[in-house]
Amino acid sequence: MKKLSPKTISRLAPWLLTLFVLVCWEAICRGFSIPTYLMPAPSQIYTTGIELAGPIMEHATHTLLTTLAGFAVAVVVGAVLGMIVGSSPVIYKAVYPMLVGFNSVPKVAFVPVLVVWFGIGTVPAILTAFLISFFPVVVNVAAGLSTLEPELEDVLRSLGASRLDILRKVGLPRSMPFFFASLKVAITLAFVGSVMSETVASNVGVGYLMMSASSSMNMPLVFAGLIVIGIMGVIMYELFARLERRLTGWANRGQNAAH
């Protein structure tokens, strides 16, 4: 039997672990005769997902578009704010405590306020996704810019570079690994924000679907919604991980070589 290479094992490991978890899950549900309304087996979730594939995909598409809209706003606002915060030590010290305090507030507390301002629907979900996902972008971009060595800045200024030149030609490229790393975190948080808002203030989306299913004790549909959200999150995370490796591979040569 041909021995598998470490690279092949690394690629198969997530699939094998997922299969192992599903098999154990199925065995526990069947072995202990756990009622479906408490914990459905993967086979029951799969059957429900196939039967209701149309409605699930419709709600999932809406959630995905809502999440991407909130995420896009978070990236733009977070990158601009991160550049402002990271470009000046004074602004960094002044703004950072406020950002940390804002991020510490549970975003679900903003949903009722957003409903009052914008009504029930898509807008509160987009804004909640934005509010919960922009902080990692701000922090990482600001951290990337603030790690620029003062000695390097002094050398560049002595060569006639302006503050804008230093930011554009050195600071921003230096912060790119931080920026792309923050995108992987921010996109998963954006899903959390949009689904959280949909469970409270929407009549469409996976969050609304799960709330409707739970009210009728249709737990297989609830878990199907959870799995769909998880799959979308993994796909988007992997997309930005590949983008990060392609565009900032120069900053992680050793790590990329290991993969």
Rank of each mutant, 00 (worst) to 15 (best):
S5V: 06
S5E: 12
P6T: 02
T8Q: 10
S10A: 13
R11K: 15
W15M: 14
L16E: 14
L19E: 13
V21F: 12
L22W: 06
V23W: 05
W25L: 07
A27G: 10
I28C: 09
S33P: 00
P35L: 03
T36G: 11
Y37I: 13
L38E: 10
M39R: 02
P40I: 05
Y46A: 15
T48M: 09
E51K: 15
L52A: 10
E58K: 02
A60M: 13
T61V: 13
H62Y: 10
L65E: 08
A69Y: 05
A72E: 09
V73G: 00
V76A: 14
G78H: 02
V80S: 09
L81I: 14
M83L: 15
M83N: 08
I84E: 05
V85W: 03
G86C: 11
S88A: 12
S88D: 14
P89V: 09
P89C: 06
K93P: 02
V95I: 14
Y96C: 03
P97H: 07
L99V: 14
L99P: 01
N103H: 13
N103T: 06
K107I: 08
V108A: 11
F110P: 04
P112I: 07
V116N: 09
F118Y: 05
I120W: 01
V123H: 00
V123G: 01
V123K: 06
A129C: 10
F130M: 08
F130C: 05
L131A: 05
F134D: 04
F135G: 02
V138R: 05
V139N: 03
V141Y: 04
V141M: 12
L145M: 09
L145T: 00
T147M: 02
L148M: 12
L148I: 07
E151R: 03
D154T: 03
V155P: 04
L156N: 03
R157T: 05
S158K: 06
S158W: 00
L159S: 06
A161G: 09
S162I: 08
R163K: 14
R163H: 11
I166P: 00
L167K: 05
L167H: 04
R168D: 09
K169Q: 15
V170C: 01
V170N: 03
V170H: 00
P173V: 01
R174Q: 15
R174F: 06
M176E: 07
P177K: 08
P177I: 11
F179N: 01
F179E: 03
F180Y: 15
F180A: 05
L183I: 10
A186Q: 01
A190I: 09
G193A: 07
S197A: 15
N203T: 14
V204K: 07
G205S: 11
G205T: 00
M210P: 07
S214V: 07
S216M: 12
N218Y: 12
M219T: 13
L221M: 15
L221F: 08
V222E: 02
A224Q: 00
G225S: 04
I227H: 04
V228A: 04
V228W: 03
I229H: 05
I229S: 01
M232C: 13
G233Y: 02
V234Q: 14
M236I: 10
E238D: 14
R242Q: 12
R246W: 11
A251E: 08
A251Y: 10
R253F: 14
N256I: 11
A257H: 11
A258F: 13
H259R: 15
